[in-house]
């Protein structure tokens, strides 16, 4: 095994894993706070990919060509509108079910993801859509003396940097601000939190907004990276991100990122060194194995059952 190939596969896995991790955060936060698997979250990511392309097209029609400016504006606009989607869905579809059975919101989420997928398909057409290449070029890093090198594109670098930054910001919010405290309190005991004067409905709404915003960051960066998307991408990515969230321990923020990275690396190494036909089989088997030995995921808190 050549070191350059090994290094390149590690890079591939890390970049893929980071994008899984960003989306997994949405799953993990919503699960942590209301104990619900938000299956529509993958579709939120898909919507954000479309929004990216649309805002890019709008900016281009104004004749704006400055790449940093475009990037910042598109990122900000996409985050805002996607977050609004997250909030809106919570308001109309999940809040009415707040005190109902555990499975009812799950079914609503499945229904919502069908609705979102088909709404986008009917509005934008079933074609693949593309994004013009904004950042071209890559860093070439020599690995050994034979001239073997690994390539990391600028967009891939950007993905990792932005993901780390947003993780840092999110961790700060959750641990150092009053909003974060309210979130954690609601997570632990919703009734008690509301007795103490926390508007839990508002907190839950904010969690949906944060989750959607993280999915939007992933949506912008990943679409820039692959250059194309269609209305179907939410499903496959959503399942993988959900797997990542559970792998890391659902409810735990660093767990989501860790789960994403492990999943990304596992897929990349298995596809690269064994067989890409069976990479998903390997990824899911790994998940089952890890959960057998650590039933609450890698960083999850074991559930304490009270009698």
């Amino acid at each position: 095994m050549e070191p350059s190939i090994l290094a390149q596969q590690t890079v591939n896995g890390l970049v893929l894993g980071t994008s899984y991790g960003l989306i997994a955060i949405g799953y993990t936060m919503v699960y942590g706070i209301i104990g619900m698997i938000n299956f529509a979250h993958g579709e939120i990511y898909m919507v954000s990919a479309y929004l990216t392309a649309i805002f890019l097209a709008v900016l281009a029609s104004f004749g704006i060509t400055s790449v940093p400016f475009t990037l910042v504006v598109v990122l900000a606009a996409t985050i805002c509108v996607t977050a609004l989607h997250g909030w809106f869905l919570e308001r109309i579809a999940y809040r009415p079910l707040r005190n109902s059975t555990r499975l009812a919101p799950l079914i609503t989420a499945i229904g919502l993801s069908l609705v979102l997928q088909n709404y986008v398909r009917l509005s934008q057409g079933a074609r693949s859509q593309g994004i013009p290449t904004l950042l071209q070029g890559s860093f070439a890093i020599p690995i050994d003396s034979h001239g073997n090198l690994i390539r990391i594109t600028h967009v891939q670098t950007l993905i990792v940097i932005v993901a780390l930054l947003s993780m840092a910001v999110l961790t700060f919010i959750m641990h150092r601000t009053s909003l974060g405290r309210a979130c954690r309190a609601t997570e632990q005991d919703r009734i008690m939190a509301s007795l103490l004067g926390i508007d839990t409905d508002r907190v839950i709404a904010i969690v949906f907004i944060i989750g959607a915003a993280m999915a939007a960051i992933a949506g912008v960066l990943v679409s820039l990276n692959y250059g194309s998307f269609d209305f179907h991408i939410g499903f496959v990515t959503g399942i993988k991100a959900f797997t990542a969230a559970v792998l890391g321990g659902i409810g735990s923020l660093p767990g989501a990122m860790l789960g994403g990275l492990i999943l990304g690396l596992a897929e990349s190494f298995f596809a690269g060194f064994v067989n890409s036909d069976y990479k998903d089989v390997f990824a899911f088997s790994l998940l089952v194995l890890i959960l057998i030995f650590r039933p609450s995921g890698l960083l999850g808190q074991p559930q304490i059952t009270k009698v």
Binding site: V47, Y50, L51, A53, I54, F55, L56, A57, V58, A60, S61, V81, L84, H85, F88, Y119, V120, S123, Q124, G125, Q129, G130, I131, P132
Partner: peptide, 26 residues
């Protein structure tokens, strides 16, 4: 108003390659 803001980009600005067509009705 909220729905208008939400749906304006997705159903109002339909992508056509790297450009878009304006559909103000949907």
């Amino acid at each position: 108003a909220l729905v208008l803001v939400l749906t304006a980009p997705i159903s109002g600005l339909v992508l056509d390659g790297y450009r878009f067509d304006l559909h103000w009705q949907p």
